[in-house]
Write a protein that binds this DNA or RNA. Structure first.
Length: 635
DNA sequence: AGCACGCCGACT
DNA sequence: GTCGGCGTGCTC
């Protein structure tokens, strides 16, 4: 008998001989086996009668250890590897396997103690009884809850957890960012006590190991954490919550590029658990999934419309020359706010002072290597590439038309700061990612004006402002990505959430008539989703199709582009659309060239089988690095 | 992940 | 001439 063993390395399962005296049920157990002259821990994923191929030297498993994976865990592992086009070892590596091995693997199972607080139960005739039933009876079902506010989102979650605690066996609660763990921790600690453990990427190796050991030993069966916690090594899972389900943070950009929200749904399906997705601004994709019956909407629990800040669309100053970037109406409101000792937030998603543009031909100075605009920093009197770090003097003449009319154009945080200080006679606090590392010099009581990127908005989430102005909404809307409108809508809703309910949010734009801005202004979720879905349908983009993005990084350009084009054209597959190949700016250092291919199909099986084939072919080419991204966020 | 092999720069 | 840098490839 032979066993397929997966190691936590970038490798597919490897075949080993099972020693005669080995226990019978090896599947899911940890074994020690020789690999490259060393002895390594791996996971048995299947037991087979004979090896798949005649390997020259099949070696024997050295020792058998504790169980790591249940049947469900193995199914999930397999799915992760298939779906995200990664070797199984990569999937295992993301699944707390190393942490388990290093703890020495305590094997004893202590019974889960359930705090059985007798709480008065109002007869629940709301939709929530669907959720409770689903948890109690171990049925798979995914729900989508669209609360009116973050506090409502969290209070529903607490209510469910409190109610279902006695019959919940295994639960995962996901938050998009580490900072949001704090908000849920006290209440969950109160409900679950010792059953609760926290899991996120910034835990020390030791703490992560401790958490893994607690979970594996069955002492912890409720896990609160970020993205990676969706793969917590729980034996049973009866409830998975994904808060802020629209968040981009759930998608990984390296290693196994999984989307924790989608993994949550799949894990729920495999484990027969209740999955609750929630967001104050759900993703278009999730809304679509409620429309096709994949998710069950929870509408009745949405509170009646709460008061929200007024959103005002303001046209940008059209007069050329001396006119300020900040529109008169915004300035007036800012003055008004400061006179009342209120707090005003200026937001612009561009660092530095401005860009440099040729007034003759309209060309913007760009980084030749990265193909993105160079940012002008006034204090340094230099332009800088925020991507590769290149810094140089402002070019005297235009590289396109050779003219000499190079002028600052557009605005960044520095320029807004300069204008605010000049026009309102007040100091401002500049809050940017690199500039002010924690602890923040946060004194908005003294400095009512804060200028920053949207990073500032995140940092200041719990700081309620009387009013805010957003300057770069046109740029966000016009990003060359099919999700640009969705992101703009979500970001703006998020910013609106940081303003007092009776306050105002100003959106300064060159196109006040833009349809998306109307949806935003009116908090018209329904209208926005309908509009966006119809747009996506006409161009056949997600959620009406599935996509996989390939990045092929390579060193020296013999005609790889032509080779790949020929390779793709050789076989045309029905129901599959191939966009590219196109040259794009390099993404890996030491690989000066990059080619991109986008695969798109309505049928995810066609898409995946072709993507896997293509990946195998591309990996055979020498001196290339292939990166496959399934369900990419940025296209 | 580690470990071997291989191809260009610094140097006893 | 060699030593050694890391960049690349392989592991049943």
């Amino acid at each position: 008998m032979y066993a397929d063993v997966v190691f936590p390395l970038k490798l597919p399962p490897l075949t080993y001989k099972i020693p005669a005296n080995a226990p019978y049920d090896l599947r899911g157990k940890i074994v020690k086996a020789p690999l490259m002259g060393k002895s390594l821990y791996g996971l048995v994923v299947s037991v087979i009668g004979s090896p798949e191929r005649n390997w020259k030297n099949i070696r024997e498993i050295e020792s058998v250890h504790q169980r790591f994976a249940s049947e469900s865990n193995l199914s999930l592992l397999k799915w992760l590897s298939d779906y995200y086009l990664a070797p199984m070892g990569t999937a295992l590596n993301s699944s707390f396997f190393e942490e388990t091995i290093k703890t020495g693997g305590s094997n004893q199972q202590s019974a889960v103690r359930i705090k059985n607080k007798e709480q008065k139960r109002e007869t629940e005739n709301s939709e929530l009884s669907l959720v409770y039933d689903c948890i109690k009876e171990k049925n798979y079902r995914s729900f989508l809850f669209h609360p009116a506010s973050i506090s409502q989102e969290l209070s529903i979650l607490n209510k469910i957890m409190g109610e279902a605690a006695p019959y919940m066996h295994g639960a995962i609660i996901l938050v998009p960012e580490i900072g949001q763990i704090e908000r849920l921790l006290p209440d969950l600690k109160n409900i679950f006590g010792e059953r609760l453990c926290v899991l996120h990427s910034r835990l020390t190796a030791k703490k992560r190991m401790e958490a893994a050991a607690q979970i594996l030993a069955g002492r912890s069966d409720v896990v609160l954490g970020t993205r990676s916690a969706v793969l917590a090594p729980l034996k049973n899972v009866s409830f998975i919550a994904v808060t802020g389900e629209h968040s981009n943070s759930y998608k990984g950009e390296e290693g196994l590029r999984y989307n924790a929200r989608d993994v949550a749904v799949m894990r729920g399906f495999i484990e027969k658990s209740c999955v609750l997705l929630s967001s104050v601004c759900p993703s278009v994709e999730s809304i679509y999934n409620t429309k096709i019956g994949k998710y069950t909407p929870l509408n009745a629990n949405r509170q009646p419309e709460t008061k929200r800040p007024r959103i005002k669309i303001v046209g940008a100053n059209r007069t050329k020359g001396k006119a300020s970037t900040i529109a008169g109406e915004v300035l007036k409101e800012a003055k008004n706010t400061i006179s009342k000792k209120g707090k005003f937030l200026f937001l612009i998603n561009r660092k530095g002072y401005s860009l440099i543009r040729c007034e003759d031909c309209g060309h913007t100075v760009q980084c030749k290597k990265c193909g993105i605009p160079l940012v002008f920093y006034k204090a340094k009197n230099a332009v800088k590439c925020n991507y590769c770090g290149l810094e140089k003097n402002i070019p005297e003449s235009c590289e396109e038309c050779k003219g000499f009319a190079m002028k600052p154009s557009g605005a960044g945080t520095e320029k807004i700061k300069e204008e605010v200080e000049e026009l309102l006679g007040t100091k401002t606090l500049l809050l940017e990612k690199e500039r002010s590392l924690s602890p923040l010099p946060l004194t908005p009581d003294i400095l009512p004006f804060v200028v920053g990127t949207t990073y500032a908005a995140k940092k200041l989430r719990d700081e309620k402002f009387d009013a805010a102005a957003l300057f770069n909404i046109d740029q966000t809307l016009s990003q060359p990505d099919f999700r640009a409108y969705e992101r703009t809508f979500q970001q703006t809703m998020q910013i609106a959430g940081t303003i007092k309910p009776d306050g105002s949010l100003f959106l300064q734009t060159w196109n006040p008539k833009n349809r998306i801005l109307r949806f935003i202004k009116n908090y018209d979720f329904h209208g926005f989703y309908e509009h966006e879905l119809s747009q996506r349908k006409t161009i056949d983009y997600p959620p009406f199709s599935k996509i996989v993005l390939f990045n092929i990084s390579y060193k020296k350009g013999i005609n790889l582009l032509d080779d790949i084009r020929n390779m793709l054209e050789a076989e045309e597959i029905k129901g599959l659309e191939v966009l590219g190949p196109v040259e794009i700016p390099p993404i890996l250092k030491s690989y000066p060239h990059c080619i991109q291919i986008l695969l798109k199909s309505k049928d995810s099986r066609i898409l995946h089988s072709y993507a896997r084939q293509l990946l195998n072919k591309l990996e055979k080419i020498k001196d290339v690095k292939i990166n496959a991204d399934v369900d990419p966020l940025k296209v």
